[in-house]
Amino acid sequence: MSAKTAGTPPVSATTSKRPAGTLYRGREGMWSWVLHRITGVAIFFFLLVHILDTALVRVSPEAYNAVIGTYQTPIMGLGEVALVGAIVYHAFNGIRIILIDLWKKGPKYQRAMFYVVVAVWVITMLAFVPRHLMNVFGH
């Protein structure tokens, strides 16, 4: 079966070594997808833990405070930077996926949109990380 997408020439008619029109094979299209899966799994497992730790408010104030106190240690503070980084990437790349699927010009600009995701991720993290590290290490 040869890879063919409407509007793109077969790979034999080009000088390319890769089939054309494969958005999710190689380069930005694939790596953004790989990152989306990895961050998604990480966020899912954190979510399971986070619901359980929050449920401790129903046990006693002391139990909740003891566990949430471990979220305020320096090591967990760095973990929260990684967690927020994963969430912010998953959020912005998710919007990129929606645009690829629903916006007429989405597939054409998917590569450019990936770099927009990276840029907006950097800006968001620049706003978050210094503030968060001040809260973690400043006490």
Partner: peptide, 17 residues
């Protein structure tokens, strides 16, 4: 929860309550 006030440092039972 993380940016306003003291951020993660301010989270305890009273905050959630």
């Amino acid at each position: 929860n993380l940016m306003v006030g003291d951020g993660v440092h301010a989270i305890d039972f009273a905050f959630v309550g």
